[in-house]
Design a binder for these strands. Structure first.
Length: 475
RNA sequence: GGGGCCGUGGGGUAGCUUGGUCUAGCCUCCCAGCUUGGGGUGCUGGAGACCCGAGUUCAAAUCUCGGCGGCCCCA
C-alpha cells in the first residue's frame, strides 16, 4: 500500500482523514476544541477500554473527581503551579456575581485528588492507593492547536494516581506502570521509545519523569504517555500522612501516570497509508465489513447469504457490518478502506456458487477465498494475523527512523533531512544539553529507560560521555 | 515571544490586483428517479456559499480597521 502523501504531506493527510473517516469535525468555532463523531468516538471508546481493563487487572480502581479546583488549593504546590499557571482557565463568576475564590478548570488532577487522599489515608493499612480516572482537562495553549495532538480541551485524559508507604514501593509502582503502558501500546501496535526526561523537562512537582514517544510519519516524535515519580513533594504540601505499624506519622510516596487521546492519533498515523486509516482489529469500530455484489437477476441469494454471514460473525462476537446500500461495490470498497476497516468480505454470484466468501485485507490488499463453513475461525485468524503484521510493520519503520550520530552537524542533518530519533553521546550536564538542543534544532527526549551503555565524547564540551541521549523534532 | 499568508455552498476552488458586467462559475459530495453492479457506473433533475462587526462609497465577495478562525516561518 502506498505511503507517499501519508509521509510527505502528513499534516494534510491527518486533517483530511479526521473528516473523511468520520473521526472528528474540526470546525467547532472555538480554537483548540473539536467534536468527536460517532465513528471516532467508538474508536476512542475501544482504545480506552483496553487501558481500563489493563489498569483494573493490575489493581487500579476507577474514580471520578470534579472538574473545578479552588484557587487556594490549586496553588499549594509551588513547583506544580510554576509549570501550569500560564495555561489554566479560570472560572471567575457564578451567574452575575464574582466568585470569592476563583475556580480552576483542571489542567491535570493532582491538586484535585490529593486533598481527598489526605482524608482517605490514615494508616499503613490504607496503602497503597491506586486509582485512575478518564476525564477532560483544559489547557490554555498559546501555540498552534491541532486536533487530538495539541488541544485546549483534552477530552480524554486517563490519569492514574497512587500513594505508597515507601520510596521502594513507589519505585515498584513506576515499573508496573511502565509495564501496563507497554502492554497497552503493544495491543495497539504503536511503537515507542521509553526515556527518562531531562530535569528541565520533568513534570512540575515530580522527582523524575519517564515518557513514551512514538514517531509520526513526518519524522517528529509524539509523546504518548508519561509516568512520574512524585516522591513526597505533593505529600508534604497536602499533608498526606499515614501511621506506621509502630505508631509514627510518615508522609506517603506517590506516583502518577497519564495517557491522552494522543494515543488515538498515534494509532491512526502509524498504521495509515495513502488510502486512509488502517485500524488495528482490537480497536476498530467495525472489524469486518460484508459487501454483497448483486449481479442482475442474482440479487436474492447474494443478499441473503451476505446477511447470514454478517449475522454469524456478529453472533460470534466479531464487530461486523453489512453494507447493503444501493451503490456500486467499488465505491463501498473505497468507503470502508478510508475508514480503516481491517477486513472486507465480498459475496458475489461466484462465491455463492462455490459456497465461499472472498476476503480482502486492508493492510496488504491481499485477497483470498474462505470456505463458508470455515468462516468464523478463518476470520478470527485473519484478524489476528493483521494485528500482528500491523505491529511488526510499525516497529520496522520506527526502527528505521532511529539513527546514530556523534556530532552536532550529523545529528542536525539527520533530523533536517529524514526526521526521526537520533541517539548521541552526552556528558549529562544541563548546559551542554540545552546547547545541544539549540544547535541541532531538536529536543532532548532523554536517556533510555532502564539504562544504556554510553560511549564517545560529548559533542559540546568534549568530555567523556556519561550517557546516550535521544533527540528529535517533537510535536 | 516575533513575522508572514489566508477565510467564497458540506469538501476543494474561480472571481478580489483595476469596486458595478456576480442573478457568484467549475469539480466533488449530498438528495430524487431510472440505469448499473467483482475497484469511485452512466444519464436526468434538485438542494446548497461570499467568516462576523464597523467603516469608505451612489455601489463591497472585491478597499480599510477590528474581532473570530485556519495555516506557515523564525526564536
Amino acid at each position: 500500500m502506498k505511503r507517499e502523501r501519508w509521509q510527505k504531506n502528513f499534516s494534510e493527510w491527518f486533517n483530511d482523514i479526521l473528516r473523511d473517516a468520520d473521526i472528528m469535525d474540526t470546525r467547532y468555532p472555538v480554537k483548540g476544541l473539536y467534536v468527536w463523531l460517532p465513528y471516532g468516538l467508538k474508536l476512542r471508546n475501544h482504545v480506552f477500554a483496553v487501558i481500563r481493563q489493563l489498569l483494573e487487572q493490575s489493581g487500579h480502581q476507577e474514580v471520578l473527581f470534579p472538574l473545578l479546583i479552588p484557587e487556594d488549593i490549586f496553588r499549594k504546590e509551588a513547583e506544580h503551579i510554576r509549570g501550569f499557571e500560564g495555561q489554566v482557565y479560570w472560572v471567575t463568576h457564578g451567574g452575575l456575581s464574582k466568585l470569592d475564590v476563583k475556580l480552576a478548570l483542571r489542567p491535570t488532577s493532582e491538586t484535585s485528588i490529593y486533598p481527598m487522599f489526605a482524608l482517605w489515608i490514615r494508616s499503613h493499612a490504607d496503602l497503597p492507593i491506586k486509582v485512575f480516572q478518564v476525564v477532560n482537562v483544559f489547557r490554555y495553549e498559546t501555540k498552534m492547536t491541532k486536533p487530538m495532538i495539541r488541544l485546549r480541551e483534552v477530552t480524554t485524559f486517563k490519569e492514574a494516581h497512587t500513594a505508597h508507604a515507601t520510596w521502594e514501593e513507589a519505585e515498584a509502582q513506576v515499573q508496573e506502570a511502565v509495564k501496563v503502558y507497554q502492554r497497552f501500546f503493544d495491543e495497539l501496535g504503536v511503537p515507542y521509545l521509553i526515556t527518562k526526561r531531562p530535569p528541565w523537562d520533568t513534570f512540575a512537582g515530580a522527582v523524575y519523569s519517564l515518557a513514551f514517544d512514538t514517531l509520526a510519519p513526518d519524522g517528529r516524535t509524539l509523546q504518548i504517555g508519561t509516568v512520574h515519580n512524585l516522591g513526597q513533594n505533593f505529600a508534604k504540601v497536602y499533608e498526606l500522612k499515614y501511621e506506621t505499624p509502630d505508631g509514627k506519622q510518615e508522609y506517603v510516596y506517590q506516583t502518577c501516570y497519564g495517557i491522552s487521546e494522543r494515543v488515538i492519533a498515534a494509532a491512526m498515523m502509524v498504521h495509515g497509508d495513502d488510502i486512509g486509516l488502517c485500524l488495528p482489529p482490537k480497536v476498530a469500530p467495525i472489524q469486518v465489513v460484508v459487501v454483497p455484489i448483486p449481479f442482475k437477476g442474482k440479487e436474492a441469494p447474494v443478499q441473503q447469504i451476505a446477511s447470514a454471514v454478517a449475522n454469524e460473525l456478529t453472533t460470534a462476537g466479531v464487530r461486523a457490518h453489512l453494507d447493503d446500500r444501493d451503490v456500486r461495490p467499488g465505491r463501498k470498497f473505497y468507503h470502508w478502506e478510508r475508514r480503516g476497516v481491517p477486513l472486507r468480505l465480498e459475496i458475489g454470484p461466484e462465491d455463492v456458487e462455490k459456497d465461499q466468501v472472498t476476503a480482502v485485507r486492508r493492510d496488504t490488499g491481499e485477497r483470498q477465498a474462505i470456505p463458508r463453513n470455515a468462516l468464523r475461525n478463518k476470520v478470527r485468524e485473519l484478524l489476528e494475523t493483521i494485528d500482528g503484521d500491523l505491529r511488526a510493520r510499525a516497529w520496522k519503520s520506527f526502527n528505521e527512523m532511529t539513527h546514530e550520530a556523534s556530532d552536532v552537524e550529523t545529528a542536525k542533518g539527520l533530523m533536517d533531512r529524514r526526521g526521526g530519533i537520533v541517539r548521541m553521546p552526552w556528558c549529562g550536564d544541563e548546559e551542554c544539553g540545552l546547547e545541544l538542543e539549540e544547535r541541532t534544532g531538536g529536543d532532548i527526549l532523554g536517556e533510555k529507560f532502564g539504562g544504556e551503555q554510553a560511549s564517545g565524547i560529548c559533542p559540546i564540551c568534549s568530555k567523556r560521555a556519561a550517557k546516550s541521549v535521544y533527540l528529535a523534532r517533537t510535536y
